[in-house]
Design a protein around this nucleic acid. Structure first.
Lengths: 102, 102
DNA sequence: ATATAATATTTAAAATTATCGATATGATGT
DNA sequence: ACATCATATCGATAATTTTAAATATTATAT
């Protein structure tokens, strides 16, 4: 999984919405079906579907159809790469203990 | 510096634009004046000013007026908190070595 | 005081995004 | 085959975001 700046920007954009940020945080606890997410979120079913599509398109989330429901979960590989990308953006202070901007 | 979900979402939104992501990456190398950023970015001066305002509003960036120029730099405190926020969102696989989603 | 240089603000337009009602799709159960 | 349930797509609208030209502001130099 290569995480270039374009991809990281897309992921940030996906996370830059309160509903989608909430979804990601819920999925931290493991996979959830659309119906469960819907109950947590005060949005309609088409809106949830729209947000899930955005999360899937940037590969933050994967889905799995099981019996009656669609289950979503965080894509750990993408998430790990994204974390690393963010981790690698370092403020100048990180390597300067006398930095005033801290 | 408290980094709640709302604030982190704002920062993600700020980073969810290629121009602003580029600006943040440039500032990784230390402070830059608007004029320098402008040269790197293929946007007009008002557009740069607009983006800088967004970056300042979420406190990702601070500014300092020096002689003729305005110098921008990453706000290390905010950046550190944001990194920690992202770091703390963990995929289920992080604690499960047999996780299929990896 | 006036001119210049750097950055910010205003305004308006274009583009994109978020939302929801209605409808479609696809799977399951009868 | 038909009804039902869960999710996706369509179509329309409202809201937000991005952009740049024009103008304003603020500091410095003459």
């Amino acid at each position: 999984m290569k995480m270039d700046s374009d991809k990281a920007t897309l992921i940030c954009k996906a996370l830059g919405d309160l509903n989608r940020m909430s979804i990601v945080q819920i999925l931290t606890g493991g996979e959830r079906c659309a119906c469960e997410l819907l109950e947590s979120l005060d949005i309609t079913q088409p809106t949830l579907s729209y947000h899930m599509k955005i999360l899937e398109q940037c590969q933050l989330v994967t889905s799995r159809d099981d019996w009656r429901n669609t289950y979503y979960s965080l894509d750990c590989d993408t998430w790990k790469s994204f974390k690393k990308f963010i981790e690698n953006i370092s403020c100048i202070c990180d390597s300067n203990e006398n930095c005033s901007n801290y």
